[in-house]
Design a protein around this nucleic acid. Sequence first.
DNA 1: GCCGTTTTCGGCCCGACTGTTTTCAGTCG
Length: 573
Amino acid sequence: MPVRNAEVAEILNRTAEFLEIEGANPFRVRAYRNAARTVSALPQSLASMIEAGDDLSALPAIGEDLAEKIATIVETGHLPLLDDIEKHLPPGLARLLDVPGLGPKRVRVLHDELGIDDLDKLIAAAKAGRLRRLPGFAAKTEANILRAAQTRGVEERRTKLAEAEQIADPLVRYLAETRGVKKVIVAGSFRRRQETVGDLDILVSCTQDAPAVDRFVAYEDVAEVTSKGPTRSTVILRNGLQVDLRVVPEVSYGAALHYFTGSKAHNIAVRRIAVAKGLKLNEYGIFKGEKRIAGRSETEVFARVGLPYIEPELRQDRGEIEAARKGRLPKLVALADLRGDLHTHSTASDGRASIAEMAAAARERGHSYIAITDHSKRVTIAHGLDAKRLARQLDQIDRLNAHLRGIRVLKGCEVDILGDGKLDLPASILRELDIVVGAIHSKFDMPRAKQTERIIRAMDNPRFNILAHPTGRLIGERAPYDIDMERLLKAARERGCYLEANAQPDRLDLNGAHCRMAKEIGVKLALSTDAHSTADLDLLRFAVDQARRGWIEPGDVLNARPLRDLMKLLKRS
DNA sequence: GCCGTTTTCGGCCCGACTGTTTTCAGTCG
């Protein structure tokens, strides 16, 4: 069983953590982290690259030494360097780094002086007042660490994007009402439209005397003020979400927005370009010597380092800077490009609105078509349709279409893919449909090869069009089922099938990386809401977010096509 | 440990805040 890229990245990151605790050269530590990033962003498996004789040291951030170490990891599953370190430092020690306020230096002191190597011992020692006797620690630090260890724990808490929006919107409105405040925007991973956010980064530009920070900490949902200075403050809201506020003057707004939007890796890469040009880039602007030469807008900042504007969703240091330099940035798909929705439910199965209501709501949103794709019979809990009920629904849709204006209802079904890869309804009824959306709702735990073959077998059915929520993951609740996405995408391409980017906030499936893989392999995507109510039709933008993070352009999207083109694309052979 | 339109050696992104300190280390983003 070859070692996967994610495992290699994990070992490299782990090595970086231990090297850091050991007090190694910080740049050496960074080298391991950078290499781990490269590895986890690779579109192909290291094992296959090595097998093909590729030179790993040609990859960014990987030189002779790490290429050899990575080869060893892929071959053996181990890195001897890490094994050696773990002989004298307990393996659990690195987890202490997850406690806010504890970094490598303090973890080292805790281990060397008090023998602390896990959370329980840390909490016990803090309670006994033993931390305050250590150099660099005192009563206040001890109290902070104890509280952090007890409340935040080791688990990293992440908030789904849709939920973060509901928290951010009222706070932004509140801050915008402050005297002297000009602009308020949520930057960070929220602006990059990551599927989850760890915290909210809010940027405010204002006049010098505006009471932005004071008003921020006075917000009614603030439970705790972690830090507060003249230009920066951190609070914890009652729901546990951390919010950082940064205040900058208007002349710095663009530079600050770029800086606080990140990602960190993207920022570092851009800053290196600035350094190479003899400039300095920070959150206040681009400087030549002491003189600020840009900073008011992001476009200005990019221009000064010789780059066109790069959309926030692309700022991951995954090739966007090179693409920008070559003038090859994608023209990302936008919500306005979409002409319809290809996965929705009605009251016939588990939806809450009738077909007519769904069609009217879709038309209100500017759509020119909507596919009704109720569940098939196997999904009994959703009152799935058998062939007979589906046939009646098709008649109903025909009658509706006969007098509907401005929108066309497509006859579809979300057909269950059975354990053996067969579809849940016979060809006789599938033949009558405009669109077949296939999905897995059972047997999530099949081994990788079997699960992949199961789906490919379903795609062998000439009626199959779109694979819905292809990995089945529920963010923070259920892991994706184990499939070989590369193989699946190639099979879809060969068969004229498509994959869905599902907009449900707890699915967001495909994710951005998979969207990009689909584009590279040449498989078009359907950006679909999987709506179970008329209001759900507004979720479409979350699928657009995922697609944009995956470099998807309008031409890569099935439902960015006019109806006639779409119908052609849905006809297989 | 990586890397090269100043460099194969000597750099490596940069600033704010806290808490510990008497001028700064550690952490964070």
